[in-house]
Nucleic acid binder design. Structure first.
Lengths: 134, 134
DNA sequence: TATCTGTTATACTACTTATATAACAGATAG
DNA sequence: CTATCTGTTATATAAGTAGTATAACAGATA
């Protein structure tokens, strides 16, 4: 049940953020399904060669955001009820995150069409591989 | 010639990043045109109540990214030749920044159409106010 | 000469990231 | 019962980032 984790230790993105994103990508690609078990903090930390607390930090944030459930003595699973649907608060935050990307892109002469094409390609990337189990 | 700067000191985004983004937004909205003068590091710092070095850090990065020119003893201006157009490297970085936003949105049941609609709204936001001088 | 530029240097505080150990309480397998 | 597995909590440390505070320098300009 190993999740394929590719960490970039050169990146300025913190390890626990990269870890979060990889798990979220796994859920988006449906390689991780509701109810699926995730490795324990200790085994995952050992597997990818980082500290237990770094994994725990990622898990805590994923739990906070509704991606996973943590049963105190049973382990960690992808949330059986699925991830909470995007509400208005989430959508406002999303727009706030897109905002600087759009402003920058406009300055550099990119069209709205090209920008949206990138989004479209990413949506396809995550949906194409639907259900792959490697 | 004051740039309207709205800082959020509660935000986890560093001040120098917010400052950068506001100036980039000004350029995107064409409120700041090629050749326009920007305040000196000292006067802008005094105006918005922050340290000189924080402003300098934002300016240095804007210079590095081609948004502004800094004439050693003359001051700071929006780059007269315009901002460098998006190249392949830039586009790859943009996609890398969009990637976690898209993965997250998919998990939360957002469609590609809705996601692109947000981008579209932001493009309009920056283009609507074209040339406004308040 | 006084004052404005950007630039550089140093020092300090506070916070974040990541690691290292250690211990605790509940569940479970032998 | 005991050993081992869970997540959790507590400390401590090291390195890096963010932000501030002062000070000084060199070139331009009024």
């Amino acid at each position: 049940m190993n999740v394929f984790i590719n960490l970039n230790l050169e990146s300025s993105d913190p390890i626990y953020i990269q870890l979060q994103q990889q798990i979220i990508e796994g859920i988006a690609k449906k390689q991780l399904l509701p109810g699926d078990a995730l490795p324990s903090v200790r085994s995952l930390a050992a597997d990818i060669g980082i500290n237990l607390h770094t994994v725990n930090k990622a898990y805590q944030q994923l739990k906070q955001d509704g991606f996973i459930l943590i049963h105190r003595q049973k382990g960690v699973v992808v949330h059986p009820d699925g991830v909470p649907q995007a509400d208005e608060v989430y959508k406002q935050e999303l727009k706030a995150k897109l905002r600087p990307l759009v402003a920058d892109s406009i300055c550099r002469g990119m069209s709205e069409a090209e920008f949206s094409q990138f989004s479209k390609e990413l949506f396809q990337l995550f949906n194409e591989e639907e259900g792959e189990k490697n």
